[in-house]
Design a protein around this nucleic acid. Structure first.
Lengths: 137, 137
DNA sequence: CTAAGGTCTGTAGTTGATACAGGCTCAAGG
DNA sequence: CCTTGAGCCTGTATCAACTACAGACCTTAG
């Protein structure tokens, strides 16, 4: 791990360091997920380690499917300790339930779709088992 | 099955007959998924069987996760026979691949999340294994 | 000194709906 | 006949979560 301490990098550097889209950084600042960074005399945003770390946290949370509102909640513990571990756990469990529901839903879709596709002859005729299935299901 | 032929129902009736949201019908007409229906002398939309059937087709396709653009493609076969069965099959297979990819993705998320939640003590402390995991993953 | 490329701002577009305001119209009850 | 409430009409705004663009400014390498 490279723990090289970084101070005063620009937005493009932060984007590269985290893999985050350039514009998304500005968006996160606008909605308060990321703090307004200090500026250079000419108005350029200036980031450091703490921003890299926080943005990676946000991205990891998003990658696990937490909504931005949920991420805001998670950051509550990070920032002000306004949330307890128990609350975070509850939130994560709710989210886990949603993820499992989505998996169940997609699994049902997968089953129906694969059955339907299997019934299709795949020829050049303008008559199709998939279309029929969508009409008559 | 009730095959009672229906002619000249209004938008609210179509919504009830299909379970579709009232405003969504207008939206589908605006984007060309549903045709502009004939109007009464006073401008009221007038639907019949064919609209009920088509809207149900659209809803079933959406329920299986097809995007509106994909639905548009499926409707191509229904409407003008501009697509062959083979093309529909190819589209369905691509979509099936996407569904499977999503399931794989969510399954990974589910695994990480459930492991993380399990490591959490769930007490009132302002220190949380979930937060730590999001930082250090 | 110049040219390329990075950054600044505000704003618009994306997908797939859903909601609302303000005005008409229609049907039923009194 | 009149009223009242439901339903319908239109255009426009809102949501998540970004992403992209225009036009101006700044920085840096050659």
């Amino acid at each position: 791990m490279s723990n090289t301490s970084v101070r005063s990098i620009r937005r493009g550097d932060l984007a590269r360091a985290t893999g985050c889209n350039l514009e998304t950084i500005r968006y996160y600042e606008k909605i308060g997920i990321m703090p307004d960074p200090p500026r250079s005399t000419k108005g350029y945003r200036s980031y450091d380690d703490t921003h890299v770390r926080r943005l990676k946290f946000v991205m990891r949370s998003r990658d696990l499917g937490f909504s931005l509102e949920e991420v805001r909640g998670l950051l509550g513990l990070v920032d002000n300790r306004i949330q307890t571990c128990a609350e975070v756990q509850a939130m994560a469990e709710v989210h886990l339930g949603e993820v499992r529901a989505k998996i169940a839903d997609l699994t049902r879709i997968e089953r129906v779709l694969s059955e339907t596709v299997a019934r299709c002859t795949g020829d050049a005729a303008p008559d199709c088992a998939i279309i029929d299935a969508l009409f008559d299901a």
